[in-house]
């Protein structure tokens, strides 16, 4: 049975919910059965957020099985580092090179891990770990809110499926006045060389 599991990890307010909605709809557009799970409420207030998106011939559980996730998208570096146990050996990890220090770090009571540490942590779990500057790209486009779509652009070149499926969903799901911005963000993400 074919299946692709995605996990998005970030911080409340970073736009993981829109990105996960788009990714779920793309799966449906490509003809898969789709389930998606996330938690709202208190977690939105600057806490850790995670979204599971599952594509497959038939999907039962909306959350993925530990060690079986195919793609991990880290919207924030530290948050990406929490999920090695969830990803499979040949998974792809895309990490946005952006830090939001948690309160304990701001207060000097804990240390934010270095990029190399997070990189080796992720590489111990998955063979392909790509670091991208999605926040920077989004800022260049004039709106930091589109990092999620930049990340999806980068992801799309690895996942495959016709580009039109992705574009259709973005056009359908984004408010009209933001469609151009988001299409540009998607394209900018697609152009990122993953190496």
């Amino acid at each position: 049975m074919e299946k692709i599991d995605f996990l998005m990890a970030g911080v409340g307010g970073q736009g993981t919910i829109l990105a996960s909605n788009i990714l779920a709809e793309v799966g449906l557009e490509l003809g898969y059965d789709v389930k998606k799970a996330e938690v709202h409420g208190m977690a939105q207030r600057g806490g850790t957020v995670e979204s599971h998106i599952r594509w497959g011939d038939k999907v039962y559980a909306p959350v993925a099985i530990q060690g079986d996730v195919d793609y991990l998208l880290g919207f924030e570096m530290l948050e990406a580092g929490r999920w090695p146990a969830f990803i499979k050996k040949d998974a792809v990890v895309i990490v946005n090179r952006y830090r939001i220090p948690p309160p304990s770090v701001n207060l000097g009571k804990a240390r934010y891990p270095r990029e190399e540490e997070l990189d080796s942590l992720l590489k111990s779990a998955a063979s392909r770990v790509f670091w991208i500057n999605a926040t920077e790209k989004a800022k260049e486009l004039g709106n930091p809110a589109v990092i999620g779509v930049v990340m999806l652009g980068a992801l799309s070149s690895l996942v495959g499926g016709e580009e039109s499926a992705w574009l259709n969903v973005i056009k359908r799901m984004v408010p009209e006045r933001f469609v151009d911005l988001n299409l540009k963000a998607f394209e900018a993400g697609r152009q990122i060389q993953l190496a």
């Binding site: 307010g13 977690a43 207030r45 806490g47 530290l78 948690p102 309160p103």
Partner: peptide, 11 residues
């Protein structure tokens, strides 16, 4: 690698 937790906080 020690990962500091990220509890929800006031915005």
């Amino acid at each position: 690698v020690e990962l500091p937790i990220r509890p929800p906080i006031l915005c």
